[in-house]
Design a protein around this nucleic acid. Structure first.
Length: 242
DNA sequence: CCAGACGTTGTT
DNA sequence: GTCTGG
DNA sequence: CCAGACGTTGTT
DNA sequence: GTCTGG
């Protein structure tokens, strides 16, 4: 689950909503069809590069698809777009990031493809009825191309943590992203919380009523399509609306 | 010891 | 069928 | 996640 | 980097 999402909010709105500072440089442009390997905005907490000073909550671009620090090249990361909540603390590809580099990935909503009885696939858009952005639980990693030498630039990348889907969403798909409520953000993002055994307790399915879903134009399947209409309801038959 | 993997998803 | 690119 | 490619040779 | 398989 969660192989495509929408993230169209202005950086200014995200700064306010997530109480972050912007890192210098460009954030990705608004997108209604974020695909693996795209640059996305991430919320994370870092200490300033040169020692002293308090940790800061930042908004910065990362590549979607986590590249482990030991990877020989960045290509394999294209498939590490999700990490299972059930095993994320143990898996070699994720556990270092889970212990020390947790983040939030802001989204307007995300897409799921529902497997129909006739073998077709109908995309659904899933978002909050209250209009608030989703704060998807994620991990980030820093990678330097070993072929580029010690001066090669760092590549920042991230993955979305998934869990089981419940209730109405389970009809569409059996996995969903882990969403964190505002009250849990600071605890999740605190780099020093890595040893907190209660952290995994945050990785639970969205509660009933938190999300709603509706069918959308199949055009979202092609990553070259990108427009606000991709998230709008496709209402040919109200009975197909979950 | 070295070599090689290290992940998720959906579908059967 | 399976891998790569987006 | 889906869409689209999936190959070699020789020549410019 | 670290674990597993041989």
């Amino acid at each position: 689950m969660c192989g495509r999402y929408a993230a169209s909010r202005d950086p200014d709105d995200l700064v306010e909503e997530f109480e972050v500072e912007l890192v210098p440089g460009q954030l990705p442009p608004p997108s209604w069809n974020v695909a693996p390997t795209d640059e996305v905005s991430a919320v994370l907490v870092r200490r300033p590069r040169d020692g002293g000073g308090p940790a800061q909550r930042l908004l910065r671009p990362v590549r979607w698809g986590l590249v482990p620090s030991w990877a020989r090249d960045a290509k394999g990361g294209a498939r590490l777009i999700n990490a299972r909540a059930e095993t994320v603390a143990q898996k070699p590809a994720f556990r270092a990031a889970f212990a020390a580099r947790r983040c939030l990935l802001p989204a307007d909503g995300y897409f799921e493809w529902y497997a129909t009885e006739t073998g077709g696939r109908q995309p659904y858009y899933i978002s909050r009825p209250d209009g608030a952005p989703l704060a998807m639980a994620g991990l980030y990693e820093l990678w330097r191309d070993p072929a580029g030498g010690p001066e090669a630039p760092l590549v920042w990348s991230a993955t979305v943590i998934t869990t089981t889907a419940t209730d109405e969403l389970g009809h569409i798909h059996d996995r969903s992203p882990v969403l964190l409520e505002r009250a849990d953000w600071a605890r999740w993002l605190d780099p020093g919380a890595g040893a907190d055994p209660g952290l995994t307790g945050l990785l639970v399915p969205p509660g009933p009523g938190v999300l709603r879903a509706w069918p959308v134009d199949a055009a979202v399947g092609n990553v070259r399509n990108n427009r606000p209409e991709l998230v709008e309801p496709l209402v040919h038959d109200a009975a197909t609306l979950f």
